[in-house]
Design a protein around this nucleic acid. Structure first.
Length: 517
RNA sequence: GGCCGAGUAGCUCAGUUGGUUAGAGCAGUGGAAUCAUAAUCCAUGUGCCGGGGGUUCAAAUCCCUCCUCGGCUACCA
């Protein structure tokens, strides 16, 4: 039955000790656009996001809050779910690592790795800072007074040892290098692949994958007191969600290996080194791509809690409207680069591309149709060269957009779409339909038909990035078939369809008085 | 320190394997138009393509060197 090709895209699972911020929204948004695009393009899509809920920090936060860890997780995880709602994300699943199915999957994977001989018991030793709750490498340490060892943060460190299970990461050095060399788009952007490659080429140590110092996590099978440490627990969520360990199940067969793991650059290594090594060890297929995107700055400044300039996505949506926020984040910056979030850039971009561009194009066209064509889509006459050229360009737009989307080059994809919007404005100027009203109404009908058809296709293509706004435009045109199969000449707009009085879809944004002051 | 990458118009960036007068968007300036959310269209850039040197008939594009900025350099998601 499932003849359709599949597409599996994931966000990282977000750590519940954190509050949702623009970074989370950004990562998931990119995945949402991919997922929506692929669905419209005929794919059977699985889009996964969720929360990572284990670990010492969560255990302590819960304790500090006076609640049990599960209750704490329930509460905080819900905030990420709220974000997904607020951002209109179309995730098919929201996974939580505290779910029973996840425990099952991770423990199964552990056993497989153990059976294959890639897990062994030893002692984990290192410089630990109680204050930072973190281990530091010898090379990271600073000299304090009297030669005392200090963490880079200035905190005191002590040498601690504890029993731990290890994963034989070192055994995968060559195979990982082979992977990077043979599949050069395994990690994107390219510069990140270089970083990952040089990291691995520098030599790999085995990985500590269990702890005995806390309880809030998945127990290691048959090893009292050992709790799985973050890597193996968190990364495995990508398998859990599609039914692992049931490798014969439909979801697993349809969706593994994943097409894209979207990650922030901070967690690239775990996805581009540890994760493929785990999978190699378990003899499971590797994901096709790990994409590491960049960070946002706020008005040119690095974002940090201590600076207090964290950007709250809920507030953004409140101030500017959801679709404008979605559009700006993926249109403004080449995906993979860092970008700056400034109010002036936001307003400039949205006014230029949305209000003045796509919005005005749609409004002026539909208003002319509404007023001059008895409120219905006019019948086109014989097409002129200009008509055909515009239509041909719009008919072939999907191919170009798809090419960029498949490379996660969102800004280029939207650039291509908006170029056609601009071409339509140019076309209006050259055709001057308002003059044709008196001189040659038939020709005016043709011009307006061509424009409405262009808008139809632009709106269909806009759906992944601005679902609500695109929907409004398509509603105004009374379009029912909105999949990509309706693009091109086969789905031409039906003449005679009665439309309503058009209403603007993209409002102009104004600088607040207080801000311009 | 080592490795990697980047420095191109006021701003954000494109520039495929070296090849006609180096491009786009935004901003600016001048003009046109008036269907439309005062939106749109047209015209307009003497940019040492970071500096210097080299290879070549030919370099933003290759090599060397210097300067500046950024990233990575293992267990803080």
């Amino acid at each position: 039955m499932s003849e359709r090709p599949s597409f599996y895209v994931t966000t990282p699972i977000y750590y519940v000790n954190d509050v949702p911020h623009i970074g989370h929204a950004y990562t998931t948004l990119a995945c949402d656009v991919l997922a929506r695009f692929k669905r419209l393009d005929g794919y059977n899509v699985m889009f996964l996001t969720g929360t990572d809920e284990h670990g010492q920090k969560v255990e302590k936060s819960a304790e500090a809050a006076g609640v049990d860890p599960q209750a704490f997780c329930d509460k905080v995880s819900a905030r990420f779910n709220d974000l997904a709602q607020a951002m209109n994300f179309s995730n098919d699943q929201f996974i939580r690592t505290t779910e029973p199915r996840h425990k099952l999957a991770v423990q199964h994977l552990w056993r497989v790795l153990e059976e294959k001989g890639y897990i062994y018991a030893d002692n984990y030793a290192g410089w630990y800072s109680v204050r930072d709750e973190a281990f530091y490498a010898e090379s990271e340490l600073m000299e304090g007074e009297g030669g005392a060892k200090l963490a880079p943060t200035g905190a005191a460190v002590e040498w601690v040892e504890e029993p731990s299970y290890f994963f034989k990461l070192s055994a995968f050095e060559d195979r990982l290098l082979e992977l990077y060399d043979s599949q050069t788009d395994f990690v994107m952007p390219k510069s990140r692949l270089n970083e990952v490659r040089s990291f691995v080429a520098g030599g790999l140590q085995d990985l500590s994958i269990s702890r005995t110092t806390f309880n809030w996590g998945v127990p290691v099978p048959d090893a009292d007191g050992h709790i799985m440490y973050v890597w193996i627990d968190a990364l495995t969520n990508y398998l859990t969600a599609i039914g692992y360990p049931d490798e014969a199940g439909q979801a697993y067969k349809d969706f593994w290996p994943a097409d894209v793991h979207m990650v922030g650059k901070d967690i690239l290594r775990f996805h581009a080194v540890y994760w493929p090594a785990f999978l190699m060890a378990a003899e499971l297929p590797l994901p096709k791509r790990v994409f590491a995107h960049g960070w946002w700055t706020n008005e040119g400044q690095k974002i940090s809690k201590s600076l207090g300039n964290v950007i709250d996505p809920f507030e953004l949506i409140e101030s500017y409207g959801l679709d404008a926020v979605r559009f700006f984040m993926l249109r403004e910056v080449p995906f993979g680069n860092d970008g700056d979030f400034s109010r002036s850039a936001f307003i400039a971009r949205c006014n230029a591309d949305l209000a003045n561009g796509m919005g005005n194009l749609s409004q002026r066209t539909l208003a002319m149709i509404f007023k001059n064509c008895d409120g219905s889509i006019p019948h086109p006459g014989i097409l002129s060269n200009e008509d055909s050229e515009l239509l041909n360009n719009i008919d072939s737009l999907l191919d170009e957009v798809r090419k960029h989307i498949d490379m996660q080059a969102f800004n280029r994809a939207f650039d291509a779409i908006w170029k056609q919007s601009a071409a339509a404005d140019t076309y209006i100027s050259s055709q001057e339909p308002w003059k044709l009203k008196k001189t040659d109404p038939d020709r005016m009908y043709t011009v307006l038909y061509v424009l409405a058809e262009v808008i139809r296709q632009l709106a269909i293509l806009m759906q992944p990035i601005m679902p609500e706004s695109a929907c409004k435009v398509l509603d105004q045109l009374k379009i029912e078939d909105r999949a990509f199969t309706a693009l091109g000449a086969t789905g031409r707009l039906a003449s005679g369809t009665v439309i309503d009085k058009p209403v603007g879809v993209f409002p102009r944004l104004e600088l607040d008085a207080e801000e311009s002051a």
